[in-house]
Amino acid sequence: MAEINWEQPYCGEGNNCFRLGTDHEGNAFIAVLGQEDCHLTDSREALQQMIRDIKAGKADHLL
């Protein structure tokens, strides 16, 4: 398993904290803070697109 370089946690309102990470093979990861062993994996491009979509308000209905 590749080593994941986790970013500092991002915590929204109500302490819903998650972490983003990447590895040297071009994979991107997202996990709930404290549950990094149970993460979702995708490409960096997919993670970048997800972040762009969130910033554009396309995920507001999920919050």
Rank of each mutant, 00 (worst) to 15 (best):
M1E: 14
A2S: 09
A2Y: 04
E3D: 14
E3M: 13
I4C: 02
I4R: 04
I4Q: 04
W6K: 05
W6M: 08
E7R: 10
E7H: 12
E7T: 11
Q8K: 13
Q8C: 09
Q8L: 15
P9D: 12
P9F: 10
Y10D: 14
C11Q: 14
C11N: 10
C11M: 11
G12K: 12
G12R: 10
G12F: 13
E13Q: 13
E13I: 15
E13P: 08
G14Y: 13
G14Q: 13
N15R: 05
N16S: 14
N16T: 14
C17G: 05
C17F: 03
C17V: 13
R19E: 12
L20Y: 06
L20I: 14
G21D: 15
G21P: 08
G21Y: 04
T22W: 09
H24I: 07
G26I: 04
A28E: 03
F29E: 01
I30P: 00
A31M: 02
A31S: 09
A31C: 05
L33G: 02
Q35S: 07
Q35F: 08
E36T: 10
E36R: 02
D37G: 11
D37E: 12
D37M: 08
D37W: 07
C38R: 09
H39G: 00
L40M: 04
D42M: 10
S43M: 03
S43E: 03
S43Q: 02
S43L: 02
R44M: 13
R44N: 08
E45V: 03
E45R: 06
A46P: 01
L47M: 15
Q48A: 10
Q48I: 04
Q49I: 06
R52N: 14
R52P: 02
D53Y: 00
I54T: 11
K55I: 06
K55S: 04
K55N: 12
G57F: 05
G57R: 03
K58D: 00
A59M: 07
A59Y: 08
D60G: 05
H61L: 07
H61W: 12
L63S: 09
L63D: 06
L63G: 12
